[in-house]
Design a protein around this nucleic acid. Structure first.
Lengths: 163, 163
DNA sequence: TTGACTACCATAAATAATTATGGTAAATAA
DNA sequence: TTATTTACCATAATTATTTATGGTAGTCAA
């Protein structure tokens, strides 16, 4: 793949960054603004050059730059559960602290959620206070699994032992 | 917040799904196509209704639907290292298996990469064959840390013991 | 049975975004 | 020195996308 010039590389960086951060590829006008260019034709030229070298692909729709090697992410979005209010279902609004997002390849199950870890009870397994644990919802546990147990209205991570 | 009708909810779902999956909010035309509507005015009506109920916000630019409670994700994109070729730098093209993406709140460091775990040597700590370990690049390790060690050209996860 | 609401259709107008052309200036390789 | 490449500018034309209007039909509650 032919090398990009410095200018082309920084434009591609900007596009990639926008794509990852805001989820949207910028318009030519936005690129022009960011680099304080006066003419939109300049942006066209750069995009054509970058495309000719194979780093991006475009259709003629708006905001339609595709970045090679940065396919549409297949992300899983899940709720983060902080403190658990007594008597409420686990996923009740009151318990939610926010949402996070990870690549689908990292989670095998469809039903996942995340727990904010409190305390050091699992620090032996590398799970520390303040960590976020991604949990799979399932209806059985095997000996040695780390599970979330609801004790006194608080979710606690424990290692499961059949006894 | 006033409830959405079934139809409105499924349109919002479609928009949210597109936003997460493709990174871009669909155009009215794309929504029209997906729901096999004939008139774009129908989509306008639905969007106005959904906006009036506070679930989305729009500006008059293209693809500019903002979904309430789904702020722009702050994602970190990192390379996944599979097998390590001898004599090559760790992040050399040959070693890369792909890239993954996780929420920035899950990683504290800027310099991160991911390793595909081989073997069961760390299964005691819940790290199993085929798992992906997200690693922080740092220049020291403390007693008890899990570190990646390069042994015979293979990266191996080990618990670090000062001795 | 009137009024309000939802879910549609159709068409025209306005605005956003991209493409097409045709330039200039500087650096550099043939 | 001539040709090529990069990085710009300016303007017009075209296409994509959104907005504005004004309809129809069905449902439901007053």
């Amino acid at each position: 793949m032919e090398e990009l010039t410095l200018r082309q590389a920084s434009i591609l960086d900007f596009i990639r960054d926008r794509k990852l951060r805001a989820g949207v590829t910028p318009t030519l006008e936005e690129i022009r603004g960011h680099f304080r260019l006066k003419a939109i034709g300049t942006v066209q030229d750069h995009l054509h050059a970058i495309e000719a070298k194979g780093y991006i692909k475009r259709s003629r729709k708006s905001r339609s730059i595709e970045i090679a090697g940065l396919e549409a992410r297949d992300l899983v979005d899940m709720p983060v559960i902080g403190r658990i209010a007594a008597g409420k279902p686990l996923l009740a609004e009151e318990n939610l602290e926010g949402r996070i997002c990870v690549d689908r390849s990292l989670v095998r199950s469809a039903k996942v959620f995340a727990l904010r870890v409190k305390g050091e009870s699992m620090s032996g397994a590398g799970i520390n206070d303040g960590d976020i644990a991604i949990m799979k919802e399932q209806h059985y546990a095997e000996d040695g699994d780390i599970v979330a147990a609801l004790i006194d209205g608080e979710a606690t991570l424990k290692r499961f032992r059949k006894d």
